[in-house]
């Protein structure tokens, strides 16, 4: 059983909803990245999504775009990202890590080389925004090395395609709550509840809901019908500009802990 599968099994056994924070690797500070990752876990994260910075994040709104730009300006690349995962693993062997990003950095790094290095560092899965199921053949070396490919499902996903996604999903299925970019608008939980219920009924893996989760209130509403909630832009936006480990850890706590308690009391 993979680390991701084990974690979701444990959540299910205890009847809890998973909390999945997304942070952009290298923001707000490359030096304190590992501290930030541990802080996420201490504040209640069940799984960490680590964004690989990319120059052209087509599916992301301004908050994550800017975090990506800042990280790139600080020279953050795949080597640094994998280095932080390796360092994190010396103290935490249990929290699953999913690298999220776009295909080009991995394509240029080389799929085989990336697969080898990522597994060695302790990465558990990848979520590649611009690699839909139809193009996933290129990820074969990653799967062979044991990395799970997390697939996305969206409100626009046609029923027939949803069946195929559910069949191919590994680890968990990431349900994008609305058609749009990260950090946009606010979601109507009423609309998505029915759709997520439908996906959960078909999928053999847990379903995480992301896009538009901003605070304890929205997280709690989603917890009613999802296996996990992803919090991205709201966290990245809050972390922007934080200086020094204390400020970073403090902000993580401020934003994640209320969400954690809301999820645990829903």
């Amino acid at each position: 059983m993979s680390r991701i599968d084990r974690r979701f099994a444990a959540l299910k056994a205890t009847g809890r909803t998973g909390l999945i924070p997304f942070v952009t690797a290298g923001d707000p500070s490359p030096e304190h990245m590992v501290t930030l990752m541990h802080a996420l876990v201490d504040a209640g994260a069940d799984l960490i999504e680590l964004g690989i910075p990319f120059s052209d994040p087509m599916a992301d709104g301004p908050v994550i775009q800017h975090a990506s730009e800042r990280a790139i300006a600080r020279g953050v690349g795949l080597a640094e990202v994998l280095g932080w995962v390796t360092a994190f693993r010396t103290r935490d062997a249990e929290t699953p890590i999913v690298l999220m990003g776009y295909l080009n950095p991995i394509e240029i790094h080389g799929y085989e080389r990336f697969a080898r290095e990522a597994v060695q560092a302790g990465v558990d899965g990848v979520l590649l925004v611009d690699c839909p199921l139809e193009e996933a053949a290129v990820l074969q070396p990653l799967r062979q090395a044991g990395l799970q490919q997390i697939l996305l499902a969206a409100p626009t996903t046609a029923p027939g395609r949803m069946v195929r996604l559910c069949e191919s999903a590994e680890g968990f299925l990431y349900y994008v709550s609305f058609a749009g970019i990260t950090g946009a608008g606010s979601l109507s939980t009423h609309d998505i509840a029915a759709r997520v219920a439908d996906v959960r009924a078909r999928a053999t893996v847990p379903v995480a809901v992301g896009f538009g989760v901003r605070n304890a209130q929205s997280a709690k509403e989603i917890a009613g019908f999802a296996d996990a909630v992803v919090i991205g832009s709201a966290l990245v936006g809050r972390l922007a500009g934080a200086k020094g480990p204390d400020e970073i850890v403090g902000r993580v706590r401020d934003i994640l802990q209320p969400i954690r308690s809301a999820l645990d009391t829903h």
């Binding site: 611009d130 139809e134 193009e135 996305l152 969206a154 626009t156 046609a158």
Partner: peptide, 22 residues
């Protein structure tokens, strides 16, 4: 049929765009 020109082309987009592209 997959929109490929030899090894090039394809549909490397976010899931949300797969339906409008279809």
């Amino acid at each position: 049929a997959h929109g490929r020109f030899g090894d090039f082309g394809g549909q490397y987009v976010a899931e949300t765009l797969m339906a409008p592209l279809a």
